[in-house]
Design a protein around this nucleic acid. Structure first.
Lengths: 162, 162
DNA sequence: TTAAATGATACTATAATGGTATCAATTAGG
DNA sequence: CCTAATTGATACCATTATAGTATCATTTAA
């Protein structure tokens, strides 16, 4: 399974919540209550989201966070990028290939394209889309065949615990 | 950054190598030498790839591995799925939502679409494509704007070390 | 029957991640 | 002007996941 940090997941939930209540300014405390996440964690995420330019913060009493832009303009890719860093599946792409594989790594070049494909997929989904309960009708969605799921075999020891 | 296990990266390199030398059968030992990866690790990956149906194994002396299918038919998505498990960015999708967020998680529904988009992006890139040094001309590739890279802010402590 | 190979399982150390605590800086309001 | 509320920044810890290794069982060609 392609893994993404749990904090990023939280981040998207937070962004969704804020987008749903754009009128108000939200403090970390309020959001923590509203979305039932531990306050320190919420604070950490909000800070990063703010540093990434997705949220605008106001300090001091009665301060808080608001969306920096329109939900229709903020993509999932932007949120992920803000929290996780640049979207890339492999290390070697972002960190200018310090691996000793370079010789056999004609592969590397093509990773760029893969990463791009993934990025664009994520960039097409906007925050506004996340608010709508289901948009199945709007976009042509094809669930990938269950055979793929079934074929997965654990790399780790013993149990797969899922 | 969206993370993918290093072993998966290795797996793709291995598959690429095997695809480039389809005629022969390859033992873990040979591959370990050829691609300069630790033998035990190579063995582990090959086993999983074999269990996933992407490689066909033959036991005993003079045994080894060969590609199960045509490189043009094997997608990167398949390789990733074989090694990492089903392609999904969040936990809650694959493990039938055991999170306590369900109330606020209208978001969850839409993750399916995101995961799908990513899956299709990865499924379109075939192993055969990885062999060609660059296919820039063939497919329209757009590198995402560097602004996204720049905006990334570390969630972790201190340094970003990259 | 031996050697070469895959299959399976168990173990360990390192690193990444999530989570927490603490203090500094800012600002509205009494 | 002082207090309380709030974000900003940094440092720290514990748990988990990952990569990597070791060991033994199984199969098969020579």
């Amino acid at each position: 399974m392609l893994r993404m940090g749990k904090l990023t997941d939280y981040g998207i939930v937070l962004m969704s919540y804020i987008a749903e209540h754009r009128s108000k300014q939200h403090s970390a405390h309020m959001l923590s209550d509203a979305v039932h996440m531990p306050l320190p964690t919420v604070r950490k995420i909000l800070k990063v989201l703010s540093a990434g330019g997705l949220l605008t913060s106001e300090r001091g009493a009665q301060g808080g966070y608001i969306l920096s832009g329109d939900p229709a303009d903020i993509s999932v890719a932007q949120i992920i990028t803000a929290i996780e860093g640049p979207i890339a599946l492999t290390e070697c792409v972002s960190s200018a290939s310090q691996c000793d594989q370079e010789t056999h790594c004609a592969v590397q070049t093509n990773w760029n394209q893969i990463n791009n494909a993934v990025f664009h997929a994520l960039d097409e989904v906007k925050l506004a889309d996340m608010l709508t309960p289901t948009l199945s009708a709007a976009r042509p969605v094809q669930f990938y065949p269950p055979s793929y799921r079934a074929k997965a075999v654990s790399l780790q020891d013993g149990d797969q615990h899922e």
